[in-house]
Design a protein around this nucleic acid. Structure first.
Lengths: 220, 220, 220, 220
DNA sequence: AATGAATGAGCGTTCATTCAT
DNA sequence: GATGAATGAACGCTCATTCAT
């Protein structure tokens, strides 16, 4: 799959399946993510990325159309790869609660493991970015679809309320997870991010409200 | 207050209370926010901002130290102004549930009313931004302090559970609100954002879980 | 004389003889020399000069055509004034040796007393400066004329050799004096410059050669 | 040696020994000196230099850190090269008089041959120039050391008087030479500069005084 | 006369991209 | 394929000069 998408960038349409070239492609992408994370997309220069990857500036243009394209490929491959792992992880467990827990734990683990990816992801998904717009939309959809499925299953299993506005629930969940990651990224202490999964799920399911309390005021 | 902070940008500190000069400062800031929202900070050029504000390029430097400084002032004044309105609104109502509802509704209203501000705010708070770091931290704290107070009051009033990890609850709430705003910003349809306040509060308090359900599995 | 030359700069040809305006003109010129000395002509800004003079930027243009013109007036008035003092001083003494000594001592004294003027003078006379070219030429001529007279008188008096190439002698003298001033300007210690007058005159008259020595080799 | 100093300007330190790159560095430096001579350092623009050198504006920054750096390299290489030639020339002859004559003739020849260098040198050594200060000081010292040696040797050989204040003698000599060059630079006629060497040495050694004259008045 | 806010031309510098080797 | 020197468009910023008040 990489090979396929790689091919279209070579000026001369040569099939490049050799491990060596693939390596260089990956090295550049890896380097780019690191530099983007450190400097931000605009501050990052092709020269920095090339130096980090151990290649010449010009070499980058053999594997990527231009600077924007590096970002596009990052979403196309790295984050998409991460998100498909969520799918796999969720499919491995049965009930809705476990699925939700696994989704969030995998999400946190994946982002904790790839801090640079996390930084870039957070920055790029929160600004108007013409070139990656579709990629981000696609990925967002992947994630939201999983959440939808879980919620629907949860409702069938009786775990979750029926009177939910699904669209809002999705944002409610992803937003909280994002913010937990964002806080972790901007914090100076390096606490364990994935341990937040269970407490978060608890909050999602039970809210902060006291169930003993008469909730009548809500409907009043 | 604006007049005060304006003064420091004049080469020689002259008291400028005339509406005219103040106007120009505000016009430039307004224009900058608009251009930042459309193009992103780095893509935006001083020329674009000047054109949008109807002034010469050089004029901007009579009111702002440099491009970064425009962003700093944006946070220092516009977003801080918005956030202090949250405080006022929250203080006007009595119980914790009302306070939470009012906080979130005001937040959504304010951002809905100032779409450009919202876009810039979202973008800048999610990237490593050396020059505004302190501003963002300050503002984040203002918001989180309000949430903390509400949660603590809610616990005393018996509205909220006692077994809450406050730090996480704050992120849980602000994250969801942020995501709701973010989705609104990136959506093409212009639905009413502030109407999301009550449903969100409901989710915060009750979660998505079904209270009928035996929650024993949670502790298992 | 100042009043006369001042007048031509006023846009509306009003006779300005009031001490007040004259003051302002002088204050600006004084300020400019100070700033030019500290920063160099190009690094100096009109704003700096205005601040130093305690006037508004625009006011400078009521008294000077433009930035270059300040330099022109500096030469026209300040250095010319200094050089005319040399003339007066020289005329006060009788024989060539005394005249030479007095010329050089006055020169050193004048420049020691007006360090800023000295700095600006040194810088501007050693670069191609289109706008002041004529001024510099005129002043150089004034100085060289005095030297010429002294040398000619010295030859008549038998103090000086007859076989001198006058053009070279002038450069020989002015060059050495200039260099002594230049070294003083660039040195960090603030030694007494005018005390160099007599030793210099001694060098000019006797050279560094040993008169005991058979000078035959020179003609060989 | 040039190659060595050249290297440090390349982003990644690559050994550039090819004549081509060296050429470009030299071409830019040459062009810069020409433009500096014509316009002065501040009036000169990078674009003019680039055009004169036949390269793009950006290319200059592959070889020089910034505009100031061009000036620094000019002193570091061109004038230092010239001054080291003085040393070589002086060392080739034996007695003090010959050494002095050779020093001054070489000096005049070198500056006559490199008029642009001479113009830039005169301008920059007579203004406060932060970036080149050390270079100028170093070079000045080189020159003054040679003069010192010659004078000391001259004293031992009996050519020169013993009662000399060496510090002043150095300024006396270098000042006169400088002024001769300066006059040549500003004159419109292109007379032979180096022919001034012998007459100057004669003035240095014998002064303008008439040795027949009773010098008693000097001490009186 | 005096002011100083406003102007906008102009410059140094950066950096994504190209292309000859 | 790989290189990296070369390019030149583009941008942030400065500052001499103007002019309405």
């Amino acid at each position: 799959m990489n090979t396929h998408s790689l091919r279209i960038f070579h000026r001369r349409p040569t099939i490049v399946t050799k491990a060596k070239s693939n390596d260089k492609y990956e090295r550049i992408l890896e380097a780019a993510i690191k530099v983007f994370a450190e400097q931000g997309f605009h501050q990052a220069t092709i020269s920095q990325i090339a130096r980090e990857a151990g290649v010449a500036d010009g070499t980058i243009y053999l594997y990527f159309k231009n600077k924007d394209d590096i970002m596009v490929r990052f979403f196309d491959q790295r984050t998409k790869r991460a998100f498909s792992r969520f799918r796999v992880a969720v499919d491995r467990v049965g009930n809705a609660r476990d699925k939700l827990t696994v989704l969030i734990r995998t999400h946190l683990e994946e982002f904790q493991l790839n801090r640079d990816m996390a930084v870039v992801y957070q920055a790029e998904t929160h600004r108007n970015n013409r070139s990656c717009e579709q990629q981000i939309r696609d990925m967002s959809k992947m994630y939201l679809d999983i959440v939808s499925e879980i919620v629907e299953q949860g409702q069938q299993e009786g775990l979750m309320r029926k009177d939910l506005y699904l669209g809002l629930v999705k944002r409610f969940i992803i937003g909280a997870v994002d913010e937990v990651i964002n806080t972790w990224l901007h914090s100076n202490t390096d606490y364990d991010l994935s341990s937040m999964a269970e407490p978060l799920v608890d909050l999602f399911l039970r809210g902060v409200g006291n169930p003993e309390e008469d909730e009548g005021d809500k409907d009043a």
